[in-house]
Design a protein around this nucleic acid. Structure first.
Length: 490
DNA sequence: CGTGCCGGGTG
DNA sequence: CACCCGGCACG
């Protein structure tokens, strides 16, 4: 029983899961906490929530599960939130929450700009800051649990002086490297002086605490966001008014705790004064333009053929450019690639599975500017984590970006098609993709003709090989279901 | 024979 | 849908 329980724990249990919840201390006061224990009840599972060391109200399982999502919540104007902008965790104030399309207009004071985000891309807490220590801890779910709990309890004991120091430290850390879970490009925002940073932090610190004097709990809670957490999907209406969460958790720890996954994103490099440019990804083109409009026009006219094309073309240009950030001084020579960061989709797919525990830090792939609809697949938006099921998520990659997302870089498209596992795979599997037909003349005998419909066995290691049957719970979902492995694509 | 995964089943 | 598994093909 116990062993069974612990087995299941990794996958489903909320134990230790970090949540953001209405505090018992007052209305609309959000506090970071974690699920301390659960107990069965006739009505279902109840998750008493341990927040700031004290116990908060219990939650019905379904509510608890969906707790952290902001879906279906109404954000009120002025509410402080975090979004990922240019790959950076940015603090912002809600200007408007449009419930119809479930989008939130957020004003980013630091960047002095306004951004629209899908509700699901808005967080009430900052993304976790994963230190090396925690990183190691993440290798084992249990350890992760511990670290999570610890990080939550710290705040209530510390003195103001300590608090200050930790905040500073956190700020420094934050400035040096953002959460590895957020694959992100250098931030456009300038690195501030510590004091300034602290100030702005302080300001944002109030965000989820609504100015409560017990606010100190907020930031330490940030550090342990990755927990072996259950799937968080949607909020049940019951708590929708008060219970917010920012956790982007996912379908079981096999993904978000997966050493591979943690290793993939590498710490963000910050550089001062970066300029955003848009680069044409058309083979052997690489034209750089300053504006989205420009690059779109370029792609459309130069590569896609101008004609007032079908809807498909209308969106297709999105796939052929990417945002790059060019260091200001080298801007004259944008081709100097060291400072050019492009979306590197491949990293999302497990490309280097051979060394699970080695936190190799590689040049950072960047998330698309506006995660938008692609957010499910965008590295920075917890693609795996949000929806572990690459197996299921796969098709969505080809879904055209919705019209109102103006910057959408398909990271799958950022690679040459042949190099993109997702693309090539889906091409070979899917019925017909017009673009493919266009670019690849139909040959009399299809490549796959040699044997039936069955997919050729891949060379790559699979979850079973890597983790072994005893760690089946760490396999990718597809493997668990005896489907084609999506973690170690061929 | 082990493994990958398709196709089909269950709740 | 999410999840499981029989059974087949491949190496």
């Amino acid at each position: 029983m116990t062993s069974m329980l612990s087995k299941r724990l990794g996958k489903r249990s909320l134990l230790g899961a970090r949540v953001c919840a209405p505090s018992c201390l007052g209305d609309r006061v959000l506090t970071a906490g974690h699920v301390a224990t659960w107990q069965s009840e006739v009505a279902g599972m109840v998750y008493p929530l341990s927040i700031e060391g004290s116990l908060c109200k219990g939650l019905l399982e379904e509510n608890a599960r969906s707790f952290p999502s902001l879906n279906r919540f109404k954000l009120y104007p002025g509410q402080k939130v975090y979004i990922t902008h240019n790959g950076c965790e940015c603090f912002g104030l809600v200007e408007q929450h449009n419930h119809v399309d479930d989008e939130v207009t957020v004003f980013l004071p630091v960047q002095e700009l306004r951004a629209r985000r899908k509700m699901e891309d808005v967080r009430l807490l900052e993304m976790p800051l994963i230190s090396a220590l925690e990183y190691n801890a993440l290798a084992s779910p249990e350890a992760a649990l511990r670290s999570v709990s610890c990080s939550i309890e710290v705040p209530k004991k510390r003195s103001d002086a300590v608090e200050m120091d930790e905040m500073m430290a956190a700020m420094v850390l934050t400035t040096l490297s953002c959460s590895p879970l957020v694959q992100s490009p250098p931030c456009t925002e300038k690195i501030k002086t510590p004091q300034a940073a602290f100030d702005s932090w302080k300001e944002s610190g109030d965000v989820s605490d609504s100015g409560s004097s017990t606010a100190s709990g907020h930031w330490s809670g940030d550090s342990g966001i990755s927990t072996p957490s259950p799937p968080y999907t949607q909020l049940s209406p019951k708590y929708s008014v008060e219970a917010f969460g920012s956790l982007r958790a996912d379908e079981g720890f096999d993904t978000d705790l997966d050493p591979f996954l943690v290793a993939e994103p590498s710490p963000r490099k910050r550089k001062n004064s970066l300029k955003v440019t848009y680069k044409c990804l058309w083979p052997s083109c690489g034209k750089l333009l300053r504006s989205i409009v420009g690059i779109k026009r370029h792609v459309k006219t130069q590569h896609l053929g101008d004609g007032s094309d079908s809807n498909q073309h209308k969106r297709e240009e999105d796939f052929y450019y990417t945002e790059v950030q060019v260091k200001e001084e080298s801007e004259a020579e944008p081709c100097k690639s060291p400072s050019v960061i492009t979306a590197a989709p491949a990293s999302v797919i497990q490309q280097a599975p051979a060394r699970p525990k080695v936190p190799v830090v590689e040049p950072l792939p960047v998330e698309p500017l506006q995660p938008g609809i692609l957010s499910h697949s965008a590295p920075g938006s917890f693609w795996h984590i949000h929806k572990d099921h690459a197996y299921q998520a796969l098709p969505s990659i080809q879904i055209p970006v919705s019209p109102h997302i103006f910057t959408s870089i398909s990271w799958a498209a950022a690679l040459p098609p042949a190099l993109s596992p997702i693309r090539s795979r889906s091409l070979s599997l899917s019925e017909q993709e017009p673009a493919a037909v266009k670019s690849q003349p139909i040959v009399t005998s299809p490549p796959r003709a040699h044997s039936g419909t069955r997919k050729v066995r891949g060379e790559a290691k699979k979850c079973r090989k890597v983790y072994g049957i005893e760690h089946r719970d760490q396999w990718c979902t597809a493997c668990r279901w005896k489907k084609a492995c999506q973690r170690f694509l061929d």
